[in-house]
């Protein structure tokens, strides 16, 4: 992230260390992850030790310290999705793309993430691909949805 842009974000939040979480969210919103250099600069900008920023960034599951893929596949692992077989969907993506949940393929095409419920339980098991919700999934349907990515 450009220094100037970072300074703008920090200024938007009144240069207030209590707004650290919101600042990190803004950075991730724009960069898709939290770049190391940006966090080091943020520490200097805000006068907050890097250790505290790093703790926050690794404590909350919505942050990623690694660049994420062009496509993001999120499998909901809420209870309703779990009892309807969601873990098998995670297994399937892990197997087909040779990555573990939380990882990105070597070609940066796809990141597999899991989430603990997005509150769309009626549609479970649910998979979100690039922000689009796909409900009532099973391994066969997921194969079709992700099929197009494999060809890319």
């Amino acid at each position: 992230m450009e220094s100037k842009r970072l300074q703008e974000i920090v200024a938007d939040h009144g240069k207030d260390p209590a707004q650290l979480l919101a600042i990190l969210q803004d950075i991730q919103q724009e960069e898709n992850y939290l770049p190391k250099e940006t966090l080091k600069e943020l520490a200097r900008e805000l006068g907050v030790p890097l250790a505290r920023i790093y703790s926050l960034a690794t404590f909350f599951s919505s942050f990623s310290l690694e660049p994420r893929g062009k496509h993001i596949c999120t499998v909901c692992l809420g209870t309703a999705c779990h009892v309807r077989g969601a873990p098998r969907l995670v297994d399937q993506v892990e197997r087909d793309f040779a990555i573990k949940a939380g990882e990105t393929t070597a070609d940066r095409q796809l990141t597999l993430e899991t989430v603990n419920c997005v509150g769309a339980c009626a549609l479970g098991p649910l998979v979100i691909l690039d922000g689009e919700y796909h409900g009532n999934m099973n391994t066969a349907k997921l194969g079709r949805v992700l099929g197009s990515l494999k060809k890319e």
Binding site: A18, L21, A22, R52, S55, L56, F59, F60, S61
Partner: peptide, 25 residues
């Protein structure tokens, strides 16, 4: 409005408050 960062424990009141203050929950 304060947006959470994705941590179940922040539903606990003191963890939630720590998070609003800019610390881990």
């Amino acid at each position: 409005i304060n947006k959470g960062g994705g941590a179940f424990v922040c539903g606990e009141s003191t963890a939630l408050m720590a998070s609003i203050e800019g610390f881990v929950g």
